[in-house]
Design a protein around this nucleic acid. Structure first.
Length: 370
DNA sequence: AACTATATCAACCGCATGCTA
DNA sequence: TTAGCATGCGGTTGATATAGT
């Protein structure tokens, strides 16, 4: 008799055991993998002395026996990450799990279905769309609703902002997808605003909910942050533009925390918080263009370098150049709003969170354009 | 204590995807 | 180009635990 256990043509064997794993089976599997590695899952069970299909072994290892699995209660941070990523990615559990070290996709999926989905629903948020339900105020106690409503509105605002970003970026990157697919003439079309600025606006908005950033403007060619740090973008640049960060309190550009984003990119001195924030924002612009294919460069390693810089708080020199996306050579008609950046220097949870935010954006943009 | 309802989560199943011959 | 295989993913199931009556 030929038995097909599981989908995908995993195994053709007789009398495969199913159901819960016994401690003996666990021990056999663990021992075998520790000694030989799993190799081909299909051929593993007989070698390990197991009457299981390879698929079952793989699942048991991946979701239970692997040594780097964290079990137990999810932290608040983990819950927030799951909710935020679910809002962006939907039921893509493996992708979500990639952002939660030591948690398995199955565990996250179960936690979502048994806890988070219900909780969002009770808060008046549709767990599928992450939007506020219209009838939410009818149910529950008014006091509870006031608190929850605030959170829900923030979440909704964030998602709407991100949706706007995606929509606008799509229109910009692919005019043929414009409403009703009306033909457009390039000559008549107004100059398009660089999409990156929406990213910055959304980022500021999402980090500081409740503040209306939509009308914020600053002088063209100059980004000002927190009244102290400026990012000067020269319009008269050669093939590789120069981007300088400088502190208003310093007397000249040359003796302060400055970064010349040219080739090679060199960072001198310990990074200040402003410094790091600015670099991250620039990275976001680059990543958007990278993912959309406007520039041909992979910034993954640069992000790793930035991560190292943030976590170690040490001076870092990078031999590899960071290429500047084309739009940075254009004039800026709209500029991002003020952002309150942390006043202390050195690594902190904020940095890790902001880095995660950065990763989230990459995932979002990649998901949208990928 | 006994029964029922609900919650939890490990495991299964079918399909999708990527690789290779 | 195609078929077959290995693996991964996400929806679903069902056994068990827990809470409620």
């Amino acid at each position: 008799m030929e038995v097909k256990a599981g989908g995908g043509g995993w195994d053709n064997v007789v009398e495969l055991k199913k159901g819960p794993w016994t401690p003996e089976e666990d021990h056999k599997l663990l021992q075998y993998i520790q000694q030989h590695g799993h190799g081909s899952w299909r051929t593993l069970p007989p070698k390990a002395g197991l009457q299981r299909c390879g698929k079952s072994c793989r699942l048991r290892w991946k979701n239970y026996l692997r040594p780097d699995i964290k079990r137990g209660k999810f932290s608040i941070q983990e819950e927030q990450t799951i909710i935020q990523l679910h809002a962006l990615l939907g039921n893509r559990w493996s992708t979500i799990a990639a952002h939660l070290p030591k948690r398995t996709d199955n565990e996250i999926k179960n936690y979502w279905n048994s806890h988070l989905k219900k909780r969002l629903s009770n808060m008046g948020i549709d767990p599928t769309t992450h939007k506020l339900k219209n009838h939410a105020f009818v149910c529950g106690r008014p006091h509870d609703f006031a608190n929850l409503s605030h959170m829900a509105q923030w979440e909704t605002a964030r998602l709407e902002a991100e949706a706007r970003l995606v929509r606008d970026s799509k229109l910009i990157s692919n005019p043929s997808t414009h409403l009703l697919n009306k033909p457009t003439t390039a000559a008549a079309a107004p100059p398009r605003r660089p999409p990156c600025l929406d990213v910055l606006k959304v980022w500021a908005w999402t980090n500081y909910p409740g503040k209306d950033m939509s009308n914020a403007t600053t002088p063209s060619g100059l980004l000002t942050y927190n009244g102290g740090l400026q990012l000067n973008l020269s319009d008269n640049l050669g093939p590789i533009p120069t981007v300088s960060l400088f502190d208003q309190n310093s007397s000249s550009i040359t003796n302060i925390n400055s970064v010349q984003v040219s080739s090679p990119w060199t960072v001198n001195g310990p990074p200040s918080t402003h410094y790091i924030t600015m670099i991250k924002m620039m990275m976001m612009m680059m990543i958007v263009d990278e993912v959309k294919g406007i520039i041909d460069h992979d910034y993954s390693s640069s992000m790793d370098q930035i991560h190292d810089m943030i976590m170690t708080n040490n001076p870092v020199d990078y031999a590899d150049p960071l290429w500047i996306p084309g739009f940075m050579q254009q004039g800026f008609s709209h500029l991002p709003p003020r952002i309150n950046v942390p006043q202390t220097s050195g690594p902190s949870d904020n940095y890790v969170f902001e880095l995660l935010t950065l990763m989230r954006f990459k995932a979002l943009i990649a998901h949208t354009f990928g």
